[in-house]
Amino acid sequence: MANVQDILNSKGQNVYAVSLDDSIESALKLMAEKGIGAVVVMNGKTISGIFSERDFARKTLTIDGFNLNLPVQNVMSTPVFFVHPDQTMEDCMALMTDKRIRHIPVMEEGKLTGVISIRDVIKWLIADRSFEIQELERFVSSKPHVGLV
């Protein structure tokens, strides 16, 4: 089972972030430019929250005087659920399903080292899962006295 660090090694450890007082518009522009669905929101070197397409869609209607120039602080989500690099992709799947989120920041000793997205999960599933099951099946069928029905 691959762990989070393996995925970060292959996808890259880019973290796209904005500051608390950056505008919603600038956050959306960054997301469009990088082809991503969420950005981490920083207060200096500390993570304050996460702003996703879902936050944008949901909070457009709930914030008084909503406009694209508001600071992203007003629409971000907290708390931020994260994983450690040595956790498994299955842990990520479980966290995403349970908390209904599509992005999970990766923290190592208090430092943000990457973000895992639901797309990374799907890509890994396509590549890895069938391999693992195939390997097990091949192992079982190689034993002369054991056969799969």
Partner: peptide, 10 residues
Amino acid sequence: SERDYARKAI
């Protein structure tokens, strides 16, 4: 979708 909204509103 939420993506259409996020990408095109700007």
